[in-house]
Design a binder for these strands. Structure first.
Lengths: 250, 250
DNA sequence: CAGGCTTAACAAACACTGTTCGTCAAGCAG
DNA sequence: CTGCTTGACGAACAGTGTTTGTTAAGCCTG
C-alpha cells in the first residue's frame, strides 16, 4: 500500500517531469538536439535552469528521457498483422518513423543513451520476434545490436537537415552553396562534383546515391538485413569460424 | 615599438593544417570528441583559439577533417587478396579498425560530416567491389549507404567508453553502479536487472547481448549485410514495388 | 627601395553553455 | 512553535565557439 503521496503544491505550479520532457521535445523538434540548452528549456517553462536539476541529473539524462519519450507511443503489431517477419518490419518501421519525426533525436541513441522503459519494451518484442523466426540465441543477440544501429542511423538519416540554421537576419539570396543547403543536397553536390577519372563508380552512381524515396530506401535496407539474418546457418558450430573474414589484420 | 617580446618568432609561424589536425587527433584520442575544444587544441599548439580559424572554418569542419585523417592510412586490398567479397570485408574491416582506434571519432561521421578525400577514395573502392559482385546500380547505391551506417556505428561501438570521465578527486569506493562503469557494462547491468516476467526474452539473452568478441561480432554483422545484399533480386523491376513491406503506415 | 597587399597570429570580447551553491518559500511531522 | 524536507531559483563559476580588430611578417609590383 503506497502511502498517499503528499501532493505538495507550493507557490509555483510544480512543473513536473512530464512538462520538462514535453518542453524539451518541442525544442528538439524546432531547433535540433545540439541547440537545445537547459536554459532554453527553462525559459520555455518560465523558470531558471537550476530548477531542471530537480527532475534530471544531467543534460544527457534529459536527452535520454526525451529519446525514450519519442518512442513511447509506438504500438507493437499484434498477431493479426502477419508472420513474424512482417511484424518485425512493421515494428522497426514504426520506430524509425517515430524517431525521424522528432528531428535528430536519434543521435542521442547512437552515442551514449541507455535504453529507457519504452525502448526496452520494443527491444523485448523485437527479440521475441527474432526468436520466433528461428534464430538461435547468439544470432538473436547480435541481430538486436544490428537492428538498433539500423534504427538510429536510418531515423537520423530520414530526419532531414540536422541544422535548421537559426536563419540570420539577412539570408543572402546568392548564398554560399556549401553552407545553405540541406545536408543531403550538399552530399549530392559533392558526389556530382567528383572528377570522373578518379571516381568513375561514384560519379556513375551519383544520381542514385542520394535520391529516391526515403521510406522505400529504409524498407529496402531493413529487408537486406533480415534476409542476411536468415541466410546465416541456424546453428553455428560450437567452435568459432571467425577466421574466414575477420577484419582484424593484426 | 610596443612589443619586442620573444613571442614573434619566425620558427613559431606557420603552424600548419597538419599540425592542427595532429594535435586535434591526439586530444580526441585522449579525451573524446565532445571534450575537444578549440581552446584546448590551441593550447596544445601554444597559441590562441582564433589562430585555428585560419585553417578551419568551423569546429565541425575541423572534426570532419580529423575524421577523414583517421582513415587516411587505410589501404585498399589488392587483387591478390581474394574475390570481391573477401576484399570488401577486408576493406570495411580495416576502416572500422582505423576509426575505432581513435576513440569516438566515428560519431562525427554519423552526424553531419561530408566525406573527405580519403573517405571518398574508400567509398569509391567499396562501390566498385559491390558492382563487381553483380549488384545493380540501385542496390549498389543503397548498399553504400547501409555500409556507411554499419561502419560508423560499429566503429563507435568498438571504440570503448566514450566518456573517460575525468575521474573526480574522490572516487567513492562504493561508487554508484550507474555512473562509474563502462557504457557496455552499464548496458549489461541494465539487461540483467530487468524483471523476468515483463522481459523474458531480453533476460534470457542478457549474457549474450553485450558479451563476446567485438571483432567477431563486427565480422558477423558485416557477413549478415553482404548475405542480405546477395539475397536481393539482382534486377528489381522497372516500377517500384515498395508496398510490400514499406514502413509507412500512413 | 618604397608601397601596397595578402596572410598568419593573436588579444579581447560577445553571447552563450552545463552545472553547482546558497537561499527561500511552502507544506508537513514532531 | 520548531525542525525538516522538497521544489524552485538567483547568482555565480568555469568553460565554450566564434567574431572583430589589430598586429607582424612575407611577397609581389612598381
Amino acid at each position: 500500500m503506497p502511502q498517499a503521496r503528499s501532493r505538495s503544491r507550493p507557490s509555483k505550479s510544480m512543473l513536473g517531469l512530464d512538462a520538462v520532457l514535453a518542453a524539451t521535445m518541442a525544442l528538439v523538434d524546432e531547433l535540433g538536439c545540439e541547440a537545445v540548452s537547459l536554459r532554453r528549456v527553462a525559459q520555455a517553462l518560465e523558470t531558471g535552469p537550476a530548477s531542471l536539476y530537480v527532475y534530471v541529473r544531467d543534460r544527457q539524462e534529459l536527452m535520454a528521457l526525451v529519446l525514450d519519450h519519442a518512442v513511447a507511443d509506438v504500438v507493437v503489431p499484434d498477431e493479426g498483422a502477419g508472420d513474424w517477419r512482417t511484424r518485425l518490419e512493421l515494428l522497426v518501421g514504426r520506430i524509425v518513423t517515430a524517431l525521424a519525426g522528432h528531428n535528430d533525436i536519434a543521435s542521442v541513441g547512437l552515442r551514449d543513451a541507455l535504453p529507457g522503459p519504452h525502448g526496452l519494451r520494443l527491444t523485448e518484442e523485437a527479440a521475441r520476434l527474432l526468436q520466433t523466426g528461428g534464430l538461435d540465441d547468439d544470432a538473436c543477440s547480435w541481430a538486436i545490436d544490428l537492428l538498433g544501429q539500423y534504427i538510429y542511423s536510418t531515423a537520423l538519416e530520414n530526419a532531414g537537415d540536422p541544422q535548421p540554421r537559426p536563419a540570420p537576419a539577412e539570408p543572402s539570396p546568392r548564398a554560399d552553396p556549401t553552407g545553405s543547403q540541406t545536408f543531403t543536397a550538399r552530399l549530392d553536390a559533392t558526389f556530382r562534383a567528383l572528377p570522373v577519372e578518379r571516381y568513375p563508380t561514384l560519379r556513375a552512381l551519383a544520381p542514385r546515391l542520394t535520391g529516391g524515396d526515403q521510406d522505400a530506401r529504409a524498407a529496402w535496407k531493413l529487408r537486406v538485413i533480415i534476409d542476411g539474418l536468415l541466410a546465416q546457418p541456424p546453428h553455428p558450430p560450437t567452435s568459432h569460424q571467425d577466421d574466414t573474414a575477420a577484419p582484424t589484420p593484426k
